[in-house]
Simulated assay, not measured.
Amino acid sequence: MVAKKLVTVVGATGAQGGSVVDYLLKNKSQEYTIRAVTRSTESAAAKELTARGVEVVRADLTDTAALKAAFAGSYAVFAVTNFWGVFSNAQKQFPEEKDVALLAGQAAAIETQMGINMVDAALATDTLQHYIWSTLTDAYTVSGGRIKPPHYESKAQVTRYIQSKPELLAKTTFVWCAYYATNFAGLTRPIYVPASGQYIQIQATPSEQPIACIGNTRSHFGIFVEAALARPDKTRGGRTVFAFVESTTLGGLLQTWAEAHNVKATYIQVSRETLFSSWPMEVQEFTVGMEFWDMIRDKEWTGKDNFLTYSDLGIDVARLKSVKDSFAELEL
């Protein structure tokens, strides 16, 4: 009997990591065993994973020694960090601080160190054959130094660190997760205006800005990671998998959301100064990222030889839940 390959999943109780676990558990060949890394093995989500046959171990991303123990024996590791959770904690720690750039920068530094800790743990794992790092575009480099969104730069610094380690880079796949449908239930939630009988969505970038969308992250992200694991010769060596199911524009996304809920909606662009004066820090930081995408538009930003999409991985997105159906799952 061939021994099963151990895949260790960081963030297994979150949207991305949870989706990876879901797809690996569905793997028809039962090729893998799964280990979930979590900060609390006693949480309801962790106990649910245990009930599904997943090994659950405790490790904090600030603790390299604990991460080394958690990664021990792994054939593959899926690594992810959560900037928004760290950013929220920074705001709670310094409630009087109103400088979004300062707090976002502090959160980014913490997230970068978490990512580096996982890389160091991976380097110490002698069984490791595949490292999958959930990251984002190197916005500063791609934009020629014109823009540096903290929640992009934090992950890009970890990517650069991996690239400086040839022994790990040879085993690494970078994965970018596109725009979440659930942003429409949070950061970019449309607002109902009773006087007009319709919803409005207020953003600082134009409606014709191109955007790629993953739809329901929990439903879709894991299939891209599973496909990367199944094709190591195609995906390792520092290649990038872009996880999305549909491409459209910001205005197009809003209209798809409106159709999903059978309502009317209008996209309203305002200046960043107006937006920043009246919206919380999370929206301000998110907007800097959207400004980057508006800046580069359809520019080639990774190198075609290193860039893989669903078609390259043999994923039939027509069989997945559409973005419209993903929006329909959200409450108005």
Rank of each mutant, 00 (worst) to 15 (best):
A3Y: 12
A3K: 15
K5F: 03
K5W: 04
V7G: 05
V7E: 04
V10W: 06
A12R: 05
A12D: 03
A12E: 02
T13A: 09
T13S: 09
G14E: 09
G14P: 06
Q16C: 01
G17L: 06
G18N: 11
V21K: 02
V21W: 03
V21F: 06
L24P: 05
L25P: 07
K26A: 15
Y32Q: 01
V37L: 10
V37S: 09
V37G: 09
R39T: 13
R39H: 08
S43K: 10
A46C: 01
E48I: 00
G53F: 10
V54K: 09
V56P: 09
A66Q: 02
L67S: 05
K68C: 03
T81D: 02
N82W: 12
N82E: 14
F83M: 03
G85R: 08
G85A: 04
V86K: 08
S88A: 14
N89C: 03
N89E: 15
A90M: 15
K92Y: 05
P95M: 09
P95A: 08
P95L: 07
E96V: 05
A101L: 11
L102C: 02
L103Q: 00
G105M: 12
G105N: 06
Q106N: 07
Q106L: 12
A108G: 03
N117S: 08
A122Y: 10
T127W: 12
H130L: 11
H130A: 09
L136W: 03
L136N: 13
L136T: 10
D138E: 07
R146W: 02
P149E: 11
T159K: 12
I162W: 12
K165I: 04
L169D: 01
T172E: 02
T172H: 01
F174W: 08
F174G: 02
V175P: 00
V175C: 03
C177Y: 11
Y180P: 08
R189E: 13
Y192I: 05
V193D: 11
A195N: 07
Q201R: 14
I202C: 02
Q203F: 12
T205N: 11
Q209A: 14
P210W: 07
I211V: 15
I214A: 04
G215I: 08
T217Q: 11
R218I: 08
S219N: 14
F221E: 04
G222D: 07
G222L: 08
E226N: 10
A228K: 03
R236N: 12
G237T: 03
V241I: 14
S247T: 15
T249N: 06
T249K: 10
L253I: 02
T256P: 01
W257A: 06
W257C: 06
A260S: 15
H261Q: 12
N262G: 05
V263L: 08
A265P: 13
I268E: 05
I268S: 02
Q269P: 00
E273H: 06
L275H: 09
F276D: 15
S278C: 04
S278E: 07
S278L: 05
W279Q: 13
P280E: 14
M281T: 00
T287I: 00
D298P: 00
D298W: 12
F307K: 03
L308A: 06
L313F: 12
D316P: 07
R319G: 09
L320I: 04
K324L: 06
D325V: 05
S326T: 07
L332Y: 00
L332E: 11
